[in-house]
């Protein structure tokens, strides 16, 4: 069971717990260490502020030599995020380095939220609005942020109900 990838993931998780980075949290699923759930809080002073965005990270046995596949579970409105939640980020594709760990990935995604690259758009509408009509873009992002709360509230309610029962 203790393949290099798994050992590395264990070490990443330990590191995350010991030294948690700001605005980011992640944990592996209970039964599979190769699949993680993560939450990114919208960075301050950005349209994404106060948003709580859920993600999943799927690692392979080739980790850390190959990047994990990272996807947004919550609905997202961002020039570099596809409709299915896939992220167009260079360090998750060809600029990947094994020195990156989970914290680095999540912080870089967090920083991507406010600094999109409209030159390689995954969501053309978002890219267009970002470049031409910033106010509308911010409105749409605010709507997404509120939706992220609602989703979380629903989930939380569900969890609370479970706890109560």
């Amino acid at each position: 069971m203790s393949t290099p990838a798994r050992r590395r993931l264990m070490r990443d998780f330990k590191r995350l717990q010991q030294d948690p980075p700001a605005g980011v949290s992640a944990a592996p699923t209970e039964n599979n260490i190769m699949i993680w759930n993560a939450v990114i809080f919208g960075p301050h002073d950005t349209p994404f502020e106060d948003g709580t965005f859920k993600l999943t990270l799927e690692f392979t046995e080739e980790y850390p030599n190959k990047p994990p596949t990272v996807k947004f579970v919550s609905k997202m409105f961002h020039p570099n995020v596809y409709a299915d939640g896939g992220i167009c980020l260079d360090i998750l594709q060809n600029r990947w380095s094994p020195t990156y760990d989970v914290a680095a990935i999540l912080t870089s995604i967090q920083s991507l939220l406010d600094e999109p690259n409209p030159n390689s758009p995954a969501n053309s509408l978002a890219a267009q609005l970002y470049q031409e009509n910033r106010r509308e873009y911010e409105k749409r992002v605010a709507a997404i942020v509120e939706q992220s709360w609602l989703n979380f509230q629903d989930e939380d309610d569900g969890e609370e109900m479970k706890k109560d029962t």
Partner: peptide, 14 residues
């Protein structure tokens, strides 16, 4: 983690 997020959200909702 969930606790953290909940706390954060709670704060925001407040």
């Amino acid at each position: 983690m969930d606790m953290k997020t909940l706390r954060f959200q709670n704060h925001k909702l407040y």
